[in-house]
């Protein structure tokens, strides 16, 4: 699949934003007054909104984006839009009450947290629902999205939270998220189109005659389908990108968190592992798209 930069930024940044909203809504401890509450809420909401805006401008007709809220009965993309807006409204109200009164209403926070959970889940289901892309078509996909949203959200929230020390939760969350991703990679390495029983033979229905091979494409040039779904250039640096994702997204954050914990350094230093993880996740998300095979490639010479 073609790795669209806007969608990569959207899923990584809004994942971190909604992860923060989830934690803050559940009462994640923030030390400081209204000013601190404002900054943390602004970053959480800002990351979520930035991601949403990136995805809206990725559309062919952004001016019609509001129409996307209408088909929640059948469409995960529509559900995502509704869940995201509802969550941002709830969290906005929560942040307003928090800044003005210093109180953090548990019910409103819980609702925003639930909304954030649902939003990340609906985002992941846009991919997980597709039978045409065997890599994505798995219950592990939502698990990975939720894991990364929570862990990256925890890192950013801790970095900005003003606490004297960072707890050990971050280590557990980052490790858990990457354990899920590792399981996802192991499954992906075994799930090709052929495991979904698809092949050029089933794609053409000619398997009863013999082995099927593409002789000529319909046209000499590229087309929308080959650019979007038979995209293979993005796989060129797959091994290096995976190493980058593991080092920046997993090893560096774990090491930093351990050092911060052992030395008792102030939590604000968590900013370093937070940024490192987000860069690592951009590489991870690139591969999520670039390495995914689509069924239509069977009509274009893939086997």
């Amino acid at each position: 699949m073609h790795p669209a930069v806007s969608v990569i930024f959207f899923t990584v940044l809004s994942g971190a934003g909604f992860g923060m909203i989830l934690l803050l809504g559940l009462g994640f401890e923030i030390d400081g007054g209204a000013g601190r509450a404002f900054v943390v809420s602004l970053v959480a909401g800002g990351l979520a909104v930035a991601g949403l805006l990136a995805s809206v401008f990725h559309l062919g007709h952004p001016e019609r984006a509001l129409r996307a809220l209408s088909q929640w009965r059948s469409s995960w993309l529509s559900r995502e839009g509704i869940a995201a807006i509802a969550t941002l409204v709830l969290f906005g109200l929560y942040a307003l009450v928090w800044m003005t009164t210093g109180d953090r209403p548990a019910l409103l926070g819980g609702a925003a947290a639930l909304g954030a959970l649902v939003t990340v889940f609906t985002t992941s289901m846009i991919y997980a629902q597709l039978r045409t892309v065997p890599h994505w078509n798995s219950a592990l996909t939502p698990a990975v999205y939720l894991g990364f949203a929570l862990s990256s959200g925890w890192l950013v929230a801790t970095a900005l939270g003003g606490a004297a020390t960072a707890g050990l939760w971050g280590l557990a969350l980052v490790a858990l998220a990457w354990a899920l991703k590792w399981a996802w990679w192991v499954r992906a390495s075994r799930s090709r189109l052929s495991t979904a029983a698809s092949s050029p033979e089933t794609a053409t229905g000619l398997g009863f005659l013999g082995r099927v091979r593409l002789l000529e494409r319909p046209h000499t040039g590229e087309n929308y389908l080959t650019r979007e779904m038979v995209h293979v250039i993005g796989r060129k640096h797959a091994r290096r990108l995976r190493a980058l994702a593991l080092v920046l997204g997993c090893a560096v954050p774990l090491l930093c968190l351990a050092l911060i914990h052992v030395t008792g350094a102030p939590a604000v230093l968590t900013l370093l592992p937070a940024l490192s993880m987000i860069v690592g996740l951009l590489a991870e998300r690139w591969l999520f798209f670039a390495e995914a095979e689509h069924a239509v490639s069977l009509y274009y010479g893939n086997r």
């Binding site: 699949m1 990725h58 019609r64 045409t132 009509y299």
Partner: peptide
């Protein structure tokens, strides 16, 4: 005139039956 050009339908189709108008 209702299509926002998100392209998700083309991803969902295994046959490559849908193409975005450039």
């Amino acid at each position: 005139d209702m299509c926002i050009g998100c392209g998700l339908c083309a991803w969902a189709c295994p046959y490559g039956a849908r193409e975005m108008d450039p």
